[in-house]
Design a protein around this nucleic acid. Structure first.
Lengths: 194, 194
DNA sequence: TATAACTATACAACATGTCGTCTTACTGAA
DNA sequence: TTCAGTAAGACGACATGTTGTATAGTTATA
């Protein structure tokens, strides 16, 4: 008999969804397989047909959220190279908003941020490859700096998301910070109004 | 009978040290109380005289690493307000290097970064209080952006710490990024040599 | 009717948290 | 100075719950 991928795929997804609901509520260590399968409506043993343990589910989710090289938007060296990492990241964040905000949040997985950064970096690096006036190592640090800042501010914004600023204002602010640096945005430092 | 703080303090510290050794090696979820007490040389039951569970130990360590308001260096509005958050953070990082690099690393605690940022923010905010041209909310986001970037780049640097750049070069780079932004550091964007 | 998908049940191994017990050493009265 | 009372601190053992695995049974479908 043929396998039934449409059935198993659904079951797998049900388990993932149940896990995710729990993961949004509490730390992974407090999630039991019993809970997951009960919520999803399966026998506990069924879980082991699909995953080895609870962490396996998380890894599976994370993998699906890390863009592969070919998925990332092609980098144009002509227009807006400046905003590239920002655009790239914001696009990803918007696409997977619900997952990113949890994984990058206070109860999330610190390793996920690294995975994400490391998946984006090469695409941006590519643009500068072969340019003889580019210090590769320094560029790497600049990207680490920028991506960390973006992940930080985006996650923070998402946490506040009540009466807070609009996403348009946020993006504009980020652009300004990248263009001009932090100092110019503050009083004492310049006459520019923040 | 009097308590014996010199005894309990030592036991407590022994348990903390044993925990930390394990925490440097693996994720907290994989650390058992049995392991901790065995390494420290106590009965498993003794652990519960000092901590409620494994997370309690981590919290205890984290609390001791979060600077209280009065511990933070007094903020001078006259000199170098620009480098303030940077100086403050770098000082903290240097002081607690060993702990910070683990807690802020891939196997660390994402909540610790938030705690740290939130403990530093008010001190910096203070400088701008009452300035009528300061948008408090925007300032908050700018600080979140900056502190995230600094935590990110410092942690990354610490991870690489083999044949990598010196701390002096790193600090200089960070200053430059804060002063001038990211864009100016890249080719295409300006004629400045990175 | 053969098989994929799932259920039901059971089991050993191990971690957890609790509780009663033991040990040691300080205390103060003789 | 001595020594029994006492309590802090550490220990050993227990009940409970989870994990991963194994095996037999049920349902539906092609």
């Amino acid at each position: 008999m043929k396998k039934k991928p449409e059935v198993t795929a659904q079951t797998r997804q049900n388990l993932i969804d149940a896990f995710w609901t729990l993961y949004c509520e509490k730390r992974i260590e407090k999630i039991t397989i019993k809970e997951i399968t009960q919520k999803a409506g399966y026998n506990r043993g069924t879980f082991y047909e699909y995953f080895t343990d609870v962490y396996d589910v998380l890894e599976s989710i994370e993998s699906s959220l890390i863009p592969t090289l070919d998925e990332l938007p092609p980098v144009s060296t002509t227009t807006g190279t400046l905003g590239m990492p920002l655009d790239m990241f914001l696009k990803l964040y918007k696409q997977n908003n619900q997952y990113y905000s949890v994984l990058l949040g206070d109860n999330g997985d610190p390793a996920f941020a690294s995975k994400l950064k490391n998946s984006i970096k090469p695409t941006i690096m590519e643009v500068f490859v072969g340019k003889n006036d580019v210090n590769q190592k320094e560029l790497d640090y600049i990207l680490e700096y920028t991506l960390s800042a973006m992940i930080g501010i985006m996650s923070y914004w998402f946490k506040q998301q009540t009466d807070d600023i609009t996403s348009d204002k946020l993006f504009e602010l980020i652009y300004r910070l990248m263009e001009q640096g932090v100092m110019k945005q503050l009083p004492f430092m310049s006459s520019e109004k923040v």
